[in-house]
Structure formats: structure tokens, C-alpha cells
């Protein structure tokens, strides 16, 4: 008896040590890349980059478009998540389909958007009839961001909403509350912090969107040139400026993710 528990303890120690070593290796790998960026930029360089009109324009555009995308994601994504939260036939198929844009290479996503909503696209004639010309516009930036990042919010929201307290839902049902009313008044309120966490994650993804944006919306300063595209353009001519802008973007994303932890709490499904 004594002998066996010693062996189990030894096995535990080995497992812990292995996990620690692998974890440390991964943390080191990720951190090295981030540190490499940070050590190349001085606070003065960061300040200069921030005051560059091109960067200012790109930063403003990125914030504006990603916040509008976030609004669309809440309004359109929450009902989708609410529907997916209750089981029905074909749910897995629908859910996988909705999640697809996350794993699609962003450039392919952008191409798909062009082929659907572009001038020569599937709905090109209908959109033209309505006077809507999407490619090369700021609206196209929002569409690309929403397309790519909404599934992140939807999958978080779906799993939060499907774990609602069954006793409360049952009670609402015996009181003859409709399913929509139950969702709105019983299920969603306690889930709000976790939903905010999922939204921030999606927003951060929208902020970093590059491939779908440049393919569907193009690249024009002030109209479609978001921060990630500005970083890529700057890297070709002035690497130092590019690094400064990249660090700025990184700090912004870091702040957002930290806020998620704070809002959603440690136990959240987000992280």
C-alpha cells in the first residue's frame, strides 16, 4: 500500500515537471516574438508613430470600423446564439457552417465576399439596383470584419446560453413565459459578463483583420486602410515606423483581452 502510493506520487511529480517544462517552452516561444517587437521601439518612437497622420487615420478607422462591427455582431450574433443554444435537428451542421469563416484563410473569405457582394458578384446586380456599391468602401471593411469575427462571439454566446440554470428556465416555463421572453429575461441577464467577454474577443479579432479586408475592401488611406494594413505597408518602406505601429496595436489588443478577464471573471468560458 505504502509502496504504491509512493510510486503514484513519483508519477505525479514527473507529470507535473513535464507539463511545467512544456508550458515554459511554449510561453518562452510566444513571449520571445512579442518581446522582439517591444525592445525595438522606444517611447519616443511610439509617440512619433502615433502622431503620424497616416497612423492616426488608420487608428481612427480601425477603432471606428471594429466598434461598428462589434455592434453588428451583438445584434445579429445573439439571436443566432440563442437559437443554437437549444437542440434541434441539423444543429451541428448549421453551427459548423456558421463557424467556418473563422478557419477559412481570411483572403479566401474576402474573395468569397467579393464574389457574393462585388459589382460582378452573385448579388451584384441587385445591390447596384439599390445603389449599393460595397467594394472599396468603409462599409466593406465592416462587412469583412463582421464576417470573420462574428463566429467567435457566436460560439462563446451559444455555450454560455446553453448552460443556463435549468430550474429557472423550467420555472419560467410553468409560469407560461414564452421562449423568447425566457431567453431575454431569464437566460441572458446572468450571462451578460460572459457575453461581453465573447464580444471583446470578437472585437479584438476584428481589430486585427487583414486578409479579408484587403481582398474585399482594398487599401486606401482614410477609407479602407486599417491599422493592420498600415503596419504591412509601413514595413515595406520604414520598418521602424511599422514596429511602432505594431506595438501600438499589440498594446491595444492586450488591454482588450485583459479587460475581458476582468469583465468575464476567472471562471468564464472565454479563457
Amino acid at each position: 500500500m505504502m509502496h504504491r502510493s509512493t510510486r503514484a506520487a513519483a508519477r505525479d511529480t514527473t507529470l507535473t515537471a513535464t507539463a511545467l517544462a512544456l508550458g515554459a517552452a511554449f510561453a518562452l516561444f510566444s513571449l520571445t516574438a512579442l518581446v522582439a517587437l517591444i525592445v525595438r521601439v522606444s517611447p519616443a518612437g511610439l509617440w512619433t508613430a502615433l502622431r503620424d497622420p497616416v497612423v492616426e487615420q488608420a487608428l481612427a478607422l480601425s477603432l471606428r470600423t471594429s466598434l461598428i462591427s462589434a455592434a453588428f455582431i451583438i445584434v445579429l450574433g445573439t439571436p443566432v446564439a440563442a437559437i443554437l443554444a437549444t437542440p434541434f435537428r441539423g444543429r451541428a451542421i448549421l453551427e459548423t457552417l456558421i463557424t467556418l469563416p473563422v478557419v477559412l484563410p481570411p483572403v479566401v473569405g474576402g474573395l468569397a465576399l467579393l464574389l457574393a457582394f462585388g459589382r460582378a458578384g452573385l448579388l451584384g446586380r441587385e445591390l447596384d439596383f439599390l445603389g449599393l456599391h460595397l467594394p472599396f468602401t468603409t462599409a466593406a471593411v465592416v462587412i469583412a470584419q463582421t464576417f470573420v469575427s462574428a463566429p467567435l462571439y457566436i460560439s462563446v454566446a451559444k455555450s454560455v446560453l446553453s448552460r443556463a440554470n435549468p430550474q429557472l428556465v423550467e420555472a419560467a416555463s410553468t409560469l407560461h413565459a414564452s421562449r423568447a421572453y425566457t431567453m431575454l429575461r431569464v437566460v441572458i441577464p446572468p450571462a451578460l459578463p460572459a457575453l461581453a467577454g465573447g464580444l471583446t474577443l470578437a472585437w479584438a479579432r476584428a481589430l486585427g483583420e487583414f486578409g479579408a479586408t484587403i481582398t474585399f475592401a482594398g487599401n486606401l488611406p482614410g477609407v479602407t486602410q486599417t491599422m493592420p494594413i498600415a503596419v504591412y505597408m509601413a514595413a515595406q518602406t520604414d520598418l521602424q515606423a511599422a514596429i511602432a505601429v505594431a506595438v501600438l496595436l499589440m498594446l491595444l489588443s492586450y488591454g482588450a483581452l485583459l479587460a475581458v478577464r476582468h469583465v468575464a471573471g476567472e471562471s468564464s468560458v472565454v479563457m
Binding site: A120, I214, N219
Partner: peptide, 21 residues
């Protein structure tokens, strides 16, 4: 009238070929 500044000539070709520009 420039609606997009592409990264390379392939980007220009694809926007024209797809009929967007």
C-alpha cells in the same frame, strides 16, 4: 479616382479581372 492601392501588380490584376475596378 484611385479606389485602392494594391501591394503588388497581382493585386491590381485581380481587382480588374473580378470586374470590381
Amino acid at each position: 479616382n484611385v479606389v485602392s492601392e494594391e501591394l503588388d501588380v497581382e493585386g491590381v490584376m485581380s481587382k480588374v479581372t473580378l470586374g470590381e475596378a
